[in-house]
Design a binder for these strands. Structure first.
Length: 319
RNA sequence: GGUGCCAUAGCCAAGUGGUAAGGCAAAGGUCUGCAACACCUCAACCCCCGGUUCAAAUCCGGGUGGCACCU
């Protein structure tokens, strides 16, 4: 349990469009790190513009993991991410390098930093479907009442309108024979098995929103619509996990005639702002997070980097 | 200059005598196998002044502002 024995792990997160990618390169170069993408959309091949994926030629020779590893038709979830990330980390440690987890998917990051155990049996989703099926023509709070009977604790925690989470809780209960609330409570106790440096890069909200709007415009200029059009031609549809990504669902809706292109762009900008806000809420709650507010560093990446290295030295991750 | 219509939260907007629906935005929050997901919380002395009435955002008069049409 001595922190010296723990392996180093650097996390660089922050809301979308804060500038994580750029900073991660400087950081990796400075500490001899390899980057693992903690992003639920950049794993997909062919989804480059909308996911703001780094281009090969921008990588400056720094190894990047977990990019372009799946076809958009494949499902991706946190368990799969966790396994892949751990695998990548093992390789990085073996090479004597430091893993730098970079991305904005807070939940994914947490799965790694706290090493959440998702092991209790999970089959194929058929149980989930049959639970949803049972509720099909029942009245309003049916699922929630059902959950209240088998797992009152979770029922209290999960709002009755949050069907997705209710179904997961029920699924867990019937697959494992004990409440998910019990499992979660146990997992919550765990502390990070890593010598962790957890950075969150951000800018003041107003500026962040402006950057988001600008970035969306830029994506459109770079051909986001064409990217989605070709994904659609290859069979990508709304129901796929990959097509739930910002930029993809809006363009798909436009192509399906749900609204004008102008409206699609407006919705995309708005939803991206909402997303950034949710990310902030998530990170605000994370403990031991080290905030990097750009305006406090005069927007100078070198200064930010310098500060980060100080923190890393303090934690004995870098010298 | 005349006539008509309108004036409700940042925006859109219902209510037309009994004490202010809803949507969007903004803000805050939840999250342990779809998380770029899903979900929750949240706003008004109804343009101003006077009158009628037990009671007015709602009716009447005047003012101000906007829109439309006419000369």
């Amino acid at each position: 349990m001595d922190s010296k024995k723990k392996r180093p792990l650097i996390v660089l997160t922050g809301p979308t469009a804060a500038g994580k990618t750029s900073l991660s390169l400087g950081l990796a170069a400075a500490v001899g790190g390899e980057i693992i993408s903690a992003d639920s959309m950049q794993v997909y091949r062919g989804m480059d513009i909308g996911s703001a994926k780094i281009k090969k030629e921008e990588m400056r020779g720094i190894p990047h993991h977990l990019l372009d590893i799946l076809d958009p038709s494949e499902d991706f979830d946190i368990v799969r991410f966790q396994a892949l990330a751990k695998e990548a980390m093992a390789g990085i440690y073996e090479r004597g390098h430091i893993p730098i987890l970079t991305g904005g998917t807070g939940f994914y990051i947490q799965a790694v930093t706290r090493d959440i155990d998702f092991s209790p049996s999970h089959k194929d989703g058929s149980l989930r479907e049959s639970i949803a099926e049972k509720a099909r023509d029942q009245e309003e709070g049916f699922l929630h009442r059902w959950l209240a009977q088998v797992d009152p604790q979770s029922a209290e925690l999960i709002h009755e309108n949050n069907e997705k989470r209710i179904i997961r809780a029920l699924e867990f209960y019937y697959e494992n024979g004990y409440p998910i609330s019990e499992h979660n409570a146990r997992e919550k106790e765990k502390e990070s098995p890593y010598n962790l440096a957890y950075f969150a890069l951000t800018v003041e909200r107003e500026l962040l929103y402006r950057r988001i709007d600008e970035r969306v415009d830029k994506m459109m200029e770079e051909g986001l619509l064409e990217e989605v059009r070709s994904l659609k031609a290859r069979g990508c549809r709304r129901g796929m996990v990959s097509m739930q990504g910002l930029g993809y669902k809006e363009m798909l809706d436009y192509l399906d005639g749900c609204y004008s292109l102008e409206e699609a762009v407006r919705v995309l900008k708005r939803d991206t702002r909402h997303f950034a806000k949710r990310q902030m809420t998530w990170f605000n709650r994370e403990k031991d997070i080290c905030w990097l507010k750009k305006e406090e560093f005069d927007f100078d990446e070198e200064k930010i980097l310098g500060y980060m290295l100080d923190v890393l030295r303090e934690k004995d991750i870098y010298r």
